[in-house]
Design a protein around this nucleic acid. Sequence first.
RNA 1: GCCACUGUAGCUCAGUCGGCAGAGCGGCUGAUUCGUAAUCAGCAGGCCGGGGGUUCAAGUCCCUCCAGUGGCUCCA
Length: 634
Amino acid sequence: MNHRISFPDGSTLEANPAESIGSLLTRWSPSSAPTFLAGLWNGRPVDLAFVADGPGSLAPLAFSDRAGRDILQHSSAHLVAKALVETVVGALPKVGPPTEEGFYYDFDVRPLTPPDLDAMNAAMDRAVRAREKFVRREITRDQAEKLFASNPYKLRYIAETPAGEPITVYDTGAFTDLCRGPHVPDTGWLQGAHILGFSATTPDSPGAQPLQRVRGIGFPTRPELDAFLKLREEAVARDHRTIGQRQELFFFSERTPGFAFWLPNGMVIVRELEKFVTEHLKKAGYAEVRTPLLFHRSVFETSGHWEHYRDTMFLSELDGELYGWKPMNCPGAMLIFGSRPRSYRELPLRLAEFAPLHRLEPSGTLHGLMRVRELVQDDAHIFVTEEQIEPEMRVLIDWVRDACATFRLDFAFELSTRPASFLGGSEEWDRAEATLARVLEGAGVALRRSPGEGAFYAPKIDIHLKDSLGRPWQTGTIQLDFQMPRRFGLEYQGADGKMHTPAVIHRTILGTWERFTGVLTEHVAGRWPPWLAPVQVAILPVTERHGAFAHAFAEELHASGLRSEVSGSEETLPKRVRAAELARVPYVAVVGDREVADNSVSVRVRGTKEARKMSRPEFLAFLGEKVRRRDFDP
RNA sequence: GCCACUGUAGCUCAGUCGGCAGAGCGGCUGAUUCGUAAUCAGCAGGCCGGGGGUUCAAGUCCCUCCAGUGGCUCCA
């Protein structure tokens, strides 16, 4: 008997009992049918080969949907598993889920090497060309246990499957994997699947061998994959470590790993960022402080850092006493607040501190400027009464938005709630988490939640920015803390004459100069906005005769606080133009006979080819305004 | 910290089977004085990451340490 199937656009079709949903979807929308990877049958994702056994609703899943995308990634992961099992004897697949970007598959197998990768790529190509079907089979628990008898990982998944739930496997050629599905119809759909790399994972149990993780990504077509790989190649050229070296912004010495050396050009950028932040601090009622770099261990015992982070702190023994190099500024701020009696009239008390912090980050996690062992945050601690929390938080959220707009950075807020090990009571955490959530909802911004990812003393709103390869890095953070003031015994006298414990908001906006500069370098690909560019103007005298005019112009710029460099006439003009363009200098000012004659400069704006003639005062005013307004483009 | 990979001139990289250490760019010197992405010529520049081993002989093979890269774990 036929039954009625309804579709997302409200239309319906009569289905005969043997008709697959793939066929139904094709009848429903013949033109877009080739993009359908699977279907959503009554809200459940199913294979295109699935046969509906009654009336219901049906929707397509395509690569453009998150769910459809995941299906393609998952099928691609199966392809990788099939390839590895065919290639390396004794490889045991564990699990291969889709991820944010693509997919991975973990294997219990000997460490993989580059030749394995070649062999796997070849095996994947063969399978794609063979168009092997993904065949779904429902089997009994006994059959499953027999089938995967040699694979303890799969046996565990079988054991973990609830009693009522069916156990399904998918066959792809001779390869069978335990899997809920759904999958694309056959391996011919996976021509856009590609292995991106492999590495070890941390073992589940101590002492166990790490598994090998193969990471990859899938696209519906080969050209889409090629486009992705091309973008990735370009992203590598934007790597802040490469640009930092070329533009002489910073370097790392093998002799002191994890510590950045800021070079003159990089320092210009850091100072400009500092100015940018400091201007805001003045307007927003902050006071700046400076507290010691080392504190006696008892201070960290009070703050709780000793218990949580002593293994990753730099320690020094002085006069037989242990001192720690501060990994955060908060203990210093707490001691300042507690240094004398405080009144509610002083609140909110906003104390900013840009001090070097030391953290003994594990060697394997160091990464250029993004993860270092010495860093400086644009840090501040705001001591507030309960009523002042929300208004202060709103100002902070707005400031983050404004700051990111200046740099044209895409950002996302992430709300991280209490971790497994936290200080203080649950009620206070409830209150703090609810406050943060309320402020964010009020601000109408995109928000992700990360349960259990908060700091040990406070829930936090983190700002994440992505590097050129799409890897997220936490930059700014806003944390609402009821614990640390209490642990330091902080109090203020309220209007009611009674003593109260303040709350404290720990917050950074850009995060650290190190990480923010790293992210920004990749974001602008070394093409600094004029206000940040270490050299704003390259002055190019056409011949030696024009050298004096060029230097006089440079002097004039310098007097106005603008940064220029005269590139002498030992090289030909085209060569010097090229060098300036490759150095990403925002403005090239050529001066020759014509310019000397009427006191002008011929300006080439970065990325354009035409020469714009401007009088000297005109250019000075133009650049001064660009810099003052912190325009993004030259 | 864990696993894999990599380390040759300032930078990017070549160096075959173990047999004299190479190129381009950059730098320096000289000639050229040039109008918006590369003028020509010459020269200098090396503990082949460090240490140990095998060998008649090691940039090359083995061991080990260091650093970097990619992931994992961690990230106050």
